[in-house]
Design a protein around this nucleic acid. Sequence first.
DNA 1: CGGCGATCTGTAAACGTTTACGGCCGGATG
DNA 2: CATCCGGCCGTAAACGTTTACAGATCGCCG
Lengths: 347, 347
Amino acid sequence: MTEGPTITTIAQRAGVSIASVSRVLNGLPTREDTVRRVMRAADELGYVPNSVARSLRNRRTDQIAFAMADIGNPVYVAMVREIQPLLKEAGYRLLIHSTDGQAEDELGVLRGLRERYVDGLIISPLRGVTEEHVEAIVAARAPVVVIGSLPEDMPEGALVDNVRTDSRTGVRLALEHLHAIGRRRIGFLNGPLDTVPGAARAAAYREALEALGLPYDEDLVEVGDFYRDSGARAARALLSRVPGVDALMCANDLIALGALDVLREQGRDVPGDVAVVGMDDTDLASVTWPTLTSVSLGSAERGRAAAGLLLDRLQNGPREPRVAVVRPSLTIRGSTTLPGTSPGGAR
Amino acid sequence: MTEGPTITTIAQRAGVSIASVSRVLNGLPTREDTVRRVMRAADELGYVPNSVARSLRNRRTDQIAFAMADIGNPVYVAMVREIQPLLKEAGYRLLIHSTDGQAEDELGVLRGLRERYVDGLIISPLRGVTEEHVEAIVAARAPVVVIGSLPEDMPEGALVDNVRTDSRTGVRLALEHLHAIGRRRIGFLNGPLDTVPGAARAAAYREALEALGLPYDEDLVEVGDFYRDSGARAARALLSRVPGVDALMCANDLIALGALDVLREQGRDVPGDVAVVGMDDTDLASVTWPTLTSVSLGSAERGRAAAGLLLDRLQNGPREPRVAVVRPSLTIRGSTTLPGTSPGGAR
DNA sequence: CGGCGATCTGTAAACGTTTACGGCCGGATG
DNA sequence: CATCCGGCCGTAAACGTTTACAGATCGCCG
């Protein structure tokens, strides 16, 4: 394999030193004549700088990593979709780490920061930020943005920013809406309680009920996984235990899909008999029938905010940690509104 | 910012040379005693090797890039989802390039290979492989896998493999199915003709009709974009021009979504009045109502095959180009089968 | 006890850049 | 004409590894 040209090759051909070549290529002030000779040689040789050598010298790789649980999850896809163009615009490449939600993998990525193969990291730890995460972040000495919640007491020097959403408010919005359309027996299909979203949504459900003056009833709560089939199982269990349920609050859109499957299978009308609300407001929500009312936790906004914070730190140097909070909102669709309203909604 | 420890730091602390440190860390035969001293020092200092320096010396980055039109497209998500774990397993990191389908961006990525920031590339060019693509691939001198079609006459030394699917057969399967359930006026909602899939599917539609003994009728064809709203527009146009259409073949699932929107809006029963078939068999297909019969072009398989070919080349050195062909199949769901059949389908 | 071979270790070069520093040359100034 | 200053340029070091090569050390044998 013929090795490509280097600045040394160019220097020889142009009859100058490698320093001059480098200066010309980097646009530093140089005599007109030298510039021409170097440019000519570089063109003829089809020179392309070696990014690895440059990185070694410059101590920066122009690469940023994004680590999340599962690239198949529409929430993360939405984030990547926002992050990628922002990074590209700023001259960074994007690396993807799908951690399967394994804490071990997350820690691996964080520790890997010390290998210096990226200049920064955006990470969304599924089960929250443990002490080990914190240690790794501090040791990394490379900026990190955590999407999700972060302990109050981060050590001083940690180069970390935080983007979070307020799923409590999100759940509250949904329950208020259900209450407003007359629902009183509102079931809750949640994900695992040892995940951050799961725990937060469980608490939020309870609080929101209370605020509405509705009783909390354990029988109305079912815990499963954040997947469609798990959602179906949970819905089936809940419906057979409490047939009179008139609404289902689902901790994520996939769970809601499973619930819709079961309701259809059992011939219950949505939203006539049972109203359904999902969470995350993914692309899927506008595709189901009926279309799915869903709490938007602003995935796109969170992605943008994370990229923004990271780039700011990389470009403007150290500053104290910041927190960006994205406000949830409720997108009302067919699964909670009686026919007559247009289902619509473009992609 | 305190600089991290390097092998020099370790060498000093352990009282040996950097060569010994490197040998120990790479597991080369070394005296027991030296090994212990080095390991100890490395542990105490929390040493982590600098991957950039290593890459410069080794001439490999352990990184692989995947370039596709849009990370928001479920087809590519499915591919990434398969590619990522295979690469990780083999010790490679994954970089993502979303090119927006701009040929300029695709070429940028290909040319970027010469910067040597990745060891190989998987690319899925939306508008086909032009002469410029070929040039860049040859110049790259790094292995490339093209997902999609590749010219017959690639130059000798090109380090390129190819993964393709057979959308002709895919379209044929769909039309045969529609014919079998008695449909005779089968409309076709296509994407842009200057994209590879668009052109191939247009030809395939024509051929398949012929094979079935059905006439080709221009009025039954509508060309738009590969998006939902564009699909809706196209469906609306087609339905008003030819009200008697009894089936719609859609060049992609998103287009099919748009068609379903319009059919519902016009009160036409699916599949009673109009049967609908999508293409790509994305996650969306099992979510719609009715669920969507769709031609699976094996996105997951294509992703796996591409990763496999690339890794093989990286691990086993040069060999002649290979082509992997993934066979399409038809997933029959509610949009072409009369009620009674279970819609079902887990995620 | 000298010499030989086998092991292990250290020196130094290399990967391809960027950049501090000092040298050289030209012109302007006293 | 000597001096100084400024603009360009080349030499060399640095980034942190890996590895070829040669030197050192040791045991063993003759």
